[in-house]
Design a protein around this nucleic acid. Structure first.
Lengths: 359, 359
DNA sequence: CTGTTAGCGCCTTCAG
DNA sequence: CTGAAGGCGCTAACAG
């Protein structure tokens, strides 16, 4: 991660011992002024040693630090923020933290950020553009230092807050041309879907279907693209009616859609579901309809979330490297925060086929 | 929820339209001063209408608000914070947001809090006491307005930050005696476990076992207690070797433990697992060992997390009202923030037996 | 109803 | 190397 050039050097030394020592005793937080009085140097000097800004003697440093220590002084973050106009907070906007894939990303990001002394503000949009907008407003008013968008719609309107670095995880950025302090990270959905298509045809599917979320998010369309490519190469055709749509990414919706299609007499011998939960819903519908899996129909999902391994039939799926993406996300965020140039604006992660029993 | 006395009434009117209009144009955020100049009233008056503090005419209000609107003005949160010495942030400390039960709580809390204009700082402890302590420090330094602890250990050390209201969800508080601004919320684990025991004996179990997390967290011991009570009442005894422990709450650990116990020849006809994932792991181990469920052995879990409904055999389990708890948590937090007295310090939620097929 | 006045706690020129 | 002074943007008395 390279914390080499971590900007606020003195911070840890100071907050290292805060008003929290077993059972707390804090009455009223001491301010820089009192430290200054106690040490006999001016406020300015105290400030300098706190921020390690040079221009003070070793003797003063020692004195000031010892007083600071002694009084458990901790700079008032809010005052610092006001003055410098920057917080130590990173905002994360995520559709739904209840979705394991997002939760994993969020978890990793939060933990890594804390490592370098950033806190994490979390907002769940529920794919609601209105909420997303409000969150952006809140975030903006809070002077958050950087923003990480995880997936989600964001077609409409451009979530652009100038000067605030942004990382887009699994999401298409819509930004002003002039912006350079952003980065996009995602798994190579096209490739992942290609892998899915490939294994399906390899296992003998002649008449496959796609079950997908109806919204035209880029990962969705990428996956369709990749899947179709694999079919094309194998000269397997995808029927027009083989594009099944779901209104919400949920087990129930998937179950219902597949059930209905089955009742309509639509039967396919392979299902590429753009999400594991979709796949599990589809699988159960198929199973309940008396269809044998993988004999009569094969199913493959995407994400490799924990349900995949533990459903009625272990699900073959495409794994996404959440951990890797989270790592990279904070690494790049740190760079952007540090005004370093990043090599490129788009990063792709390799998807991986996880073979289980549904294919 | 009763937002009746919500303090910052004017806020929404204002932030309703912020510097985010399709493609942003904000260069430099406008300040209260400029608004004051633009409207021709004093800064103080602008502040009053912003905070709806009365003492201004309807005419001024209109004028000010329109200018505010026109210029996409949003008060600088940090300045407000500095001035009032309080942020609009609530810290949430959660063991692992990847755990669906926690994720649900967190999600609901975050969304509800935002509704009343609070943001949410999230910290995952991973059950690591050191991390937890660090988080507390960070939180303290950030002048978070209130803290919500979700589950987790916290045996050691007292996570006590004076004057900061705390809500303990599913977790035993360890506080100074003097503190009154806290509240504990949890489902009635004893009762939930009692329900579990009851159904098991009712379905004919004579030789039940418990599979639990080895840490002595209070929900754990409560569950054991409730379960035993039910057995006692039915005069079913719990063998000494029927207390199975797992080191981590995970599918794999559960699977391994049950598998091993089976190989040791320990066979029980009913398993009360203190968590759904434990139950699913146990179930698979049993199934893989050729044991029929529920015929030869019955299994019941706890939480009613989504895997419960969708595993190899739908799991009978005890449902926790996450939504209700989250609601209450923020409601009470708001009260505490408002210095209102709460009626009691402990709240219990009714657990509910969800019958599926594993019992 | 409205404006004036004082800071909140800190950082940062600018003079020593 | 150090101190004095000004101000970040906002709120809260206190006078009118």
């Amino acid at each position: 991660m390279g914390t080499g050039t971590f900007p606020i050097v003195g911070w840890f030394d100071i907050t290292h011992h805060i008003r929290y020592t077993g059972t707390v005793s804090k009455i009223k937080p001491v301010s820089i002024k009192e430290i200054s009085e106690l040490t006999g140097v001016s406020i300015a000097t105290v400030s300098r040693v706190i921020n390690n800004n040079g221009r003070f003697s070793e003797a003063t440093r020692k004195k000031v630090q010892s007083v600071i220590r002694e009084h458990d002084y901790v700079p008032n973050a809010m005052a610092q923020w006001l003055r410098t106009n920057r917080t130590r907070n990173i905002g994360i906007i995520v559709p739904d933290i209840t979705n394991e894939f997002f939760a994993k990303l969020t978890l990793d990001i939060q933990q890594k950020l804390f490592t370098v002394n950033y806190s994490t503000l979390i907002y769940n949009t529920n794919e609601d553009p209105v909420l997303e907008k409000q969150y952006l407003q809140a975030i903006s008013a809070q002077n958050v230092r950087g923003i990480i968008f995880i997936s989600g719609g964001g077609q409409n309107g451009c979530p652009d807050i100038p000067d605030v670095p942004m990382i887009f995880l699994d999401r298409e950025p819509h930004l002003q041309d002039t912006r350079t302090n952003y980065v996009r990270i995602q798994t190579d959905h096209v490739k992942g879907a290609y892998l899915a298509g490939e294994i399906l045809v390899k296992k003998g599917c002649k008449n496959p279907a796609i079950l997908m979320y109806k919204n035209a998010l880029s990962p969705q369309s990428d996956r369709v693209l990749g899947f179709k490519t694999a079919l094309n190469e194998a000269q397997v055709s995808l029927k027009r009616e083989a594009l099944l749509h779901v209104n919400r990414v949920s087990y129930d919706d998937a179950y219902a859609v597949i059930k209905k299609s089955l009742e309509r007499g639509c039967i396919f011998d392979g299902y590429f579901c753009t999400t594991d939960w979709l796949a599990v819903g589809a699988m159960d519908a198929l199973l309940d309809h008396g269809i044998k899996i993988p004999r009569d129909a094969k199913i493959i999902g995407f994400d490799d979330v924990s349900i995949a391994a533990h459903g009625r039939i272990p699900l073959t799926t495409i794994h996404q490297d959440t951990n890797g993406m989270a790592h990279l996300a904070v690494e790049l965020m740190l760079k952007l925060l540090n005004n370093e140039q990043v090599e490129k604006f788009e990063y792709y992660f390799e998807p991986k086929l996880i073979k289980r029993r549904s294919v």
